[in-house]
C-alpha cells in the first residue's frame, strides 16, 4: 500500500529518485504506528482466549443474570459485581459531577487567571495520586468517618429511603462511591475546562450586552454550547470509575451480595478480579474472572468511544463557527 502511494508523492517532495534511507525511515515509523493496533488486538485476543470458554460454559445471559458466585461449586454469576460497579459509579457521578462542573465554571468563567494557574496544580496533583493511596486513605480515614457520624446521621434524616437503611458498617457502596468521586473529579474537571475554553467569547459577550448577569450568561449561552463536551467528560469520568480497582477493593467490603442500602458491603467487577485472580482455583474460575474483565473492557471501550466522539464534536464546534 505504501509502495503504491509513493510515486504520487515523489514529485512534490523530492526529485524522482528512490531514496532508500527515507523509505526505511517511513517503513519503520509505520511499523511503530501499527504497534498500537497490535496492542489493541492482543488485548482483545487474550481476553477472549482466557475468558471465552467460561462464558460459553455458563452461557452469556446466565453469566450476566445469575446472582450466585460460588467458587467451590463452579457457579459463576456476575450480577452482584455488575450491580456493585454500577451503584458505586452512580454514587460517584452524583457526587462528582456538580462539584467538577462548578469547579470548571469557577476556574474558567469566574476566577481571575492568577487563581486558575494556582489551582490547576493541586487538581493535577489529585489526578496523580496512586489509587492504592486513595484506598489507604479511604480505609483508615473515610470508613471510620462514615461509620460514626455520617451514616447514622444519614439514617436519621433520610432513613425513610431504602438507600440509607441498615447498620452503619462504614465499608460498603457509599464509601467506594465517595472515594471514586474524589478520583474522577480531576478527570471530569480538566476535560470540562478544556471544553468550556472552546466556547466563543462572542456568545458570552452577547448575553452580557443584553443585560444578563454573569450566571445568566453562563446558563443561557455557555452551558448549552458546552453541553455535549461536558456529557463526554462525564462519560470519561464514568469509564474511570467503572474500571477503578484498588481504592474500591479496599473500601467496598468485598461481599458478593445485592442490597439496596448504600451502607451495606458489596463487590465490584475489578475488585473481585483483584482479590481472586492470583489464587483462582482452576481454569474455569480463572476463565470466569477473565470473562468479567472482558465485560468490563467492552463497556469501557464503548463508553470511551462515545465520550471521545462527543468531546471531539464539541471541540470542533468553534472552528466551524469561526469559519
Amino acid at each position: 500500500m505504501t509502495a503504491a502511494r509513493e510515486p504520487e508523492r515523489a514529485p512534490e517532495s523530492a526529485p524522482a529518485r528512490v531514496n532508500v534511507p527515507d523509505r526505511v525511515w517511513s517503513g519503520g515509523l509505520l511499523l511503530l504506528g501499527l504497534a498500537v493496533l497490535v496492542v489493541a488486538a492482543i488485548i482483545v485476543a487474550e481476553l477472549v482466549h482466557i475468558g471465552g470458554p467460561a462464558i460459553l460454559h455458563t452461557g452469556v445471559v446466565a453469566f450476566v443474570r445469575n446472582s450466585v458466585w460460588d467458587v467451590t461449586r463452579d457457579v459463576f454469576g456476575a450480577l452482584p459485581f455488575i450491580y456493585g460497579t454500577l451503584v458505586t459509579s452512580a454514587v460517584a457521578l452524583v457526587l462528582a459531577l456538580p462539584v467538577s462542573v462548578g469547579l470548571a465554571l469557577f476556574l474558567t468563567e469566574m476566577a481571575p487567571p492568577s487563581v486558575r494557574s494556582i489551582v490547576s496544580f493541586p487538581i493535577s496533583l489529585l489526578a496523580g495520586i496512586p489509587s492504592v493511596v486513595y484506598g489507604l486513605w479511604g480505609l483508615f480515614v473515610l470508613v471510620p468517618l462514615l461509620r460514626r457520624p455520617v451514616e447514622p446521621l444519614l439514617a436519621k434524616t433520610l432513613g425513610f429511603l431504602p438507600l440509607f437503611q441498615g447498620p452503619p458498617i462504614g465499608l460498603g457502596y457509599l464509601a467506594a462511591g465517595i472515594v471514586l468521586a474524589i478520583m474522577i473529579l480531576p478527570t471530569i474537571t480538566s476535560i470540562a475546562i478544556e471544553v468550556l475554553q472552546t466556547v466563543p467569547g462572542t456568545l458570552r459577550e452577547g448575553a452580557l450586552a443584553l443585560g444578563a448577569t454573569r450566571w445568566e450568561a453562563i446558563r443561557v449561552s455557555v452551558l448549552p454550547y458546552a453541553r455535549a463536551g461536558i456529557v463526554g467528560a462525564t462519560m470519561l469520568g464514568l469509564g474511570r470509575a467503572l474500571g477503578e480497582t484498588m481504592a474500591v477493593t479496599m473500601v467496598i467490603g468485598n461481599s458478593p451480595t445485592i442490597r439496596a442500602s448504600l451502607f451495606s458491603p458489596g463487590y465490584s467487577l475489578p475488585a473481585v478480579i483483584a482479590n481472586e485472580f492470583a489464587e483462582a482455583s482452576g481454569d474455569l474460575h480463572t476463565g470466569a474472572l477473565a470473562a468479567l474483565a472482558l465485560l468490563l473492557f467492552a463497556v469501557t471501550v464503548v463508553l470511551n468511544i462515545a465520550a471521545r466522539l462527543l468531546v471531539r464534536m464539541s471541540r470542533r464546534g468553534p472552528t466551524r463557527v469561526a469559519a
Binding site: G239, G243, T245
Partner: peptide, 8 residues
C-alpha cells in the same frame, strides 16, 4: 486504549 482499566 488509554481508558481501558488497568486491571484488564
Amino acid at each position: 486504549l488509554s481508558g481501558v482499566p488497568s486491571i484488564v
